[in-house]
């Protein structure tokens, strides 16, 4: 028996080493950049990191500001682009970022992207405030989905890994890195990460959680809370410089609130085009989707 166990252990060990090498060589899992908190409590990526998204087709690099994306500040008119993983866009080449597409349409403007997965509406507002001091943009384009509003309010549901606001106390709640040590192990031990991503035990769990989240979002529209959220924003941020780029099918009640506070809106319309999304389980935009979005945003910029 001990011979069998010993041989099995060696076998598994060498298997692990071989798989680790193969996964690294063929980039079978995405490389995930490491984060840190800046002095404002915003999570950014440690500068100088670079890696690949799945299968090595897409390379990413963290810029000097701690974001993954376009950071052009050459022109007099600077427009910031703030958002979550859609703007971070780690799954597509940088040429497919909003900043790149808009730059090609408006060569006389500079575009600066500050996107990171997990950014909520209130964090996007905080980022806009921080960018005011760092690069002083003329406008901020905030790309937001319906979820980003719900996830901003801690009274609806508390997410410790996201920046939220406690509406009742009017306090911004900083985020925390969720199991950072485990993530470090997972991201560095590629075989584990590969198994984590590939096998359905975890995926099913994630899907169930996502499903629950979607249900929460629909059932928890609280007009009073949302009113208070926007009152807080009007007091603490410069709304004049903001343009909200809202994802298709955003709840009309949210749109109406945004309008009431005089914030400018670009309401995206996919027209049911399924090519916008990456696939069945991933709604992030494809390169094509990003191009279509940028065209709709460009129309707005031209007219205003």
């Amino acid at each position: 028996m001990s011979h069998f166990i010993k041989k099995s252990a060696y076998f598994v060990f060498f298997f692990g080493v071989i798989c680790e090498l193969i996964i690294r060589f063929f980039h079978l899992v995405p490389d995930i950049p490491e984060r840190y908190f800046d002095k404002h409590g915003i999570q950014r990526y440690k500068q100088g990191q670079m890696g690949f998204f799945t299968e090595g087709k897409v390379k990413w690099e963290v810029n000097n500001f701690g974001w993954l994306g376009v950071s052009d500040l050459e022109k007099d008119t600077i427009i910031s682009i703030i958002g979550d993983s859609y703007i971070e866009n780690i799954m597509n080449p940088i040429e497919c970022n909003q900043g790149s597409f808009l730059k090609s349409l408006f060569p006389n403007y500079s575009f600066f992207e500050a996107g990171r997965s997990g950014v909520t509406f209130i964090e996007a507002m905080e980022i806009s405030k921080v960018l005011e001091t760092e690069i002083a943009p003329n406008y901020h384009l905030l790309y937001l989905s319906e979820n980003d509003f719900y996830e901003s309010i801690s009274e609806i549901a508390r997410y410790s890994d996201r920046v939220q606001i406690s509406i009742e106390n009017e306090v911004i709640l900083d985020s925390q890195l969720k199991s950072p040590r485990m993530k470090k192990v997972l991201y560095n031990f590629k075989l584990l990460y590969y198994l984590y991503l590939k096998f359905p035990l975890f995926v099913e769990k994630q899907n169930k959680e996502q499903f629950k989240k979607n249900v929460i979002k629909i059932d928890n529209f609280d007009k009073v809370l949302f009113e208070k959220l926007f009152i807080y924003c009007s007091k603490n941020y410069n709304l004049d410089k903001l343009v909200f780029v809202l994802h298709p099918n955003t709840d009309k009640r949210i749109i109406s609130l945004v309008n009431n506070y005089g914030i400018r809106i670009v309401l995206l319309n996919s027209g049911g085009d399924k090519n916008w999304g990456l696939g069945k389980h991933d709604n992030h935009w494809t390169c094509y989707g990003h191009r279509q979005v940028s065209k709709q945003v460009a129309t707005y910029i031209e007219n205003h």
Partner: peptide, 19 residues
């Protein structure tokens, strides 16, 4: 012989169809 085992396992992990 072990290379054959590893090749089969890697094929299972890598070339396997949708579950």
């Amino acid at each position: 012989r072990y290379a054959m085992y590893y090749a089969l396992i890697i094929a299972i992990f890598w070339l396997g169809g949708k579950e």
